[in-house]
Computed example of a mutant assay.
Amino acid sequence: MTPADLSLTVLHAVRRAVGEGALGERARVPERVKVERPRPGGRGDWATNAALQLSREAGMEPLGVARVLVPRIAEAEGIARVEITGPGFLNITLADRGGHALVREVLTRGRRYGHGTTLQGRAFRLSHPDHVRAVVLAGAVGDLLRAQGADVTDVTDAADVPDVPDSGSAARAETVARAETVARAETVARAETGARAETVALHPLPVTHDVRALGPDAARWALLRPAAHDRALAPDGLLVQSEANPLFTVRYAHARARALLRNAAQLGIGAAYEEEVDAPRLLTVLGDHPAVLEAAARHRAPDRVARHLEATADAFLGFQHTVLPLGDEKPSAAHRSRLALAEAAGTVLAGGLALLGISAPDYL
Rank of each mutant, 00 (worst) to 15 (best):
A185E: 12
A191K: 11
H203Y: 08
V207M: 04
A197W: 08
V207D: 06
V188K: 10
A197F: 05
R178Q: 12
E180K: 13
R178E: 13
P204T: 08
G168Y: 09
R212D: 05
V182Q: 14
T208Y: 00
A191F: 08
T181L: 13
A191D: 14
D210P: 00
E174M: 04
G168N: 07
V188S: 08
H203V: 10
T193M: 09
R172W: 07
A201M: 06
V176D: 12
A213R: 14
A195V: 13
P204Q: 08
T199F: 02
V207K: 06
A197P: 03
T208M: 02
A173Q: 15
T187M: 11
T175H: 04
A189T: 10
A170Q: 14
E180W: 10
E198A: 09
E186V: 11
G168F: 11
G168S: 08
L202I: 09
T199R: 14
A185M: 15
A195M: 05
A179E: 13
S169R: 00
E180F: 13
L202E: 03
T181N: 09
A171F: 05
A170H: 10
A213Y: 03
E186R: 15
T193H: 13
H209Q: 07
L205P: 02
G168W: 12
A201F: 02
V200F: 00
E174W: 07
L214E: 03
R190L: 06
P206N: 08
E186F: 12
R172C: 00
R178S: 13
T199P: 02
E198G: 05
L205E: 10
A183I: 02
E180S: 15
E186L: 14
R212I: 03
A197Y: 07
E192L: 11
R190G: 01
P204A: 09
R178M: 11
S167T: 03
A195W: 07
R172Y: 06
P206V: 06
V182D: 15
P206S: 06
A173M: 10
A173W: 14
A177K: 08
V211D: 03
G194W: 04
V176R: 15
A191C: 04
V207Q: 07
R178I: 01
E192R: 06
A177R: 12
T193L: 14
R184C: 01
H209N: 00
E174H: 06
R190A: 15
R184D: 14
A170M: 09
A173I: 10
A177G: 09
G194K: 04
R190Q: 12
T187V: 11
P206C: 05
A213C: 01
V200L: 11
E180Q: 14
E192Y: 07
T208V: 09
T181E: 15
V176H: 09
G194Y: 07
V211F: 04
P204K: 06
